[in-house]
Each structure stands twice: as C-alpha cells, then as structure tokens.
Amino acid sequence: MENLSKKFGKTLNLDKLTSYCPGCGHGIVTRLVAEAIENLGIMERTIAVVGIGCGGFSHHYMDIDAIEATHGRSPSFAEGYKLAMPENIVFTYAGDGDTSAIGLGDLLHAANKGMPITTIMVNNTVFGMTGGQMSPTTLEGQVTTTTVKGREVPRQGYPLLVPEMMRSMEGVKYLARETVANPRGIRRAKKSIQKAFECQVKGLGYAFVEVIVPCPTGFKMKVKDSYTHCAENMVEYFKPQVFKDETEQGDVA
C-alpha cells in the first residue's frame, strides 16, 4: 500500500476495497476527482457532499472530509457549508437519479445562484443502486426494470439534458459534459473535472461537470458491451462538450 500511495498520490484512500460493481464508471470518475484535488494541492481544505446512491460511496475512497446529504439535497447542503466556511473547497458528487430527479430543483437554484461550488454528476441513465429503474436521463427505448418495453417519450418524456438547462445562467462559470467510455474520453474528463475545481479555487462561480458512464449491472450487460453501448449510444444523445469555460478569470485563492 505504501508504494501505491507514492505512485498514485495521497488523496486516494488505498486501504479501502471498492464496493462499486465490476466495470462501474464511478470508479474512474472517483479516481479523476481525487487526482484533481491532489494536483491542485487542496486536499486539506476540501469536503465532499455526496448524495444517495452509488455515488454516495465515493468519499470512502478519498482521504477527505465528507457530508452525506439527504436524497437530492447535496447542492443545498453544499451552499450552507460554503457560506459557513468560504475558504474551503466544497463539491457535490451524485448520480443522475439523485441529481436530476428529486434533486433537480436544488441543483438548478444552486447553479443559478452562482456560488463557487463544484458539482460532479455521474450519469449512467438508471437508478443503479436500487435495481436499475428508469431515471430522468434514461434513453428513449432503453429497457429498465420500470420500462420493460423501453422508455416511451409519449408516456415518460424525453431524457433530461441537464447542462443545456444551465447554459444561460450567469452564475455558471464552467459547464461541461464528458464521458469515460474510452481513453480519449477519460483524458477529456480529467481536464474538465480539474477545471471545475480550479473555477472554485479562483472564486469565479458555479462549476458543473456531467460524466457519462456505463452501468453493467443496471444495463444487464457484460462490462465490455456496456462500454460499447456507452461509447456508441449514450454519447450520441448526451454529446460530450464544454458549454462554458470562464476559468481563465480571477486570482487563485
């Protein structure tokens, strides 16, 4: 463990065995978040606010303080913490079910307020922890345990495009969608996640990164097939891109 710690940095907690399912995209995103915190040298003043669901385990694997928020309320918890401890770095980490279903109102109001907070939304298009039910981002035609014939737009509506809803908000200073479906996507996601933290370090405003990931268990697919599905189908609808980048403004705190 000591050699691995020297190789991979101190932020990752390498004494913990992962509880993520084999092939779960959360493991990659958690690693990228830890690397960003390490690279910016902000570990001692960073706190995670995690949601309910698979993303709620993320702080187990990082050597930082954390708050476990009630379902969907991570952005509101983060706002309260940031108001009380403005010198600290606070970020939320939650899945698409927590963030864009019950938590959508909290998320959009936090973004519109423009406080310097960082949000990582991990989108695998299902409620992964509770059995693979349809989430607001489930693709049209996608079979889940609650859409056994596939999501039908006339009945369940269109998959929600969360960053697009924030694009016109003045308080949002960094806004991106990335994926971990392939090495190139992972490299881009690494860059965006670090910029989202830099945005807060500079005190610019709200930063949001959606990361499109596979859920082999929820998709009922083999790991390789789930990554192919993510690369070919999920990113066709959820197109990776940087919507807004104002991180070159402001002074580092």
Rank of each mutant, 00 (worst) to 15 (best):
F127H: 12
N112Y: 08
S100A: 15
V126D: 00
Q133I: 09
D106A: 14
T125G: 05
P86K: 13
L104T: 14
L107V: 13
T99G: 04
A101C: 14
D98M: 09
G105K: 04
L83K: 09
L107E: 09
I120P: 03
K113N: 12
T130F: 00
S100M: 12
T118K: 09
G132P: 04
H109V: 13
T92F: 02
H109E: 14
T99K: 11
D106I: 04
L104D: 05
K82V: 03
N88A: 09
T130D: 07
A111H: 11
S100V: 14
P116K: 06
T92W: 02
T119D: 08
G103F: 07
S100R: 08
T119S: 06
L104Y: 12
P116A: 06
T118L: 00
M121S: 03
G103M: 03
V90M: 01
E87L: 13
G114C: 08
F127Y: 13
P116D: 10
H109K: 10
T130S: 14
L83R: 08
A84S: 09
H109A: 09
M115K: 14
D98L: 08
D96M: 02
M121A: 03
G128H: 09
M121T: 07
N123S: 06
I117R: 02
V90K: 00
L108M: 12
M121Q: 07
A84L: 08
D96H: 02
G103S: 06
N124W: 06
I102F: 10
D106Y: 10
N112F: 10
V122P: 03
A101E: 10
G105A: 11
P116M: 09
T119C: 14
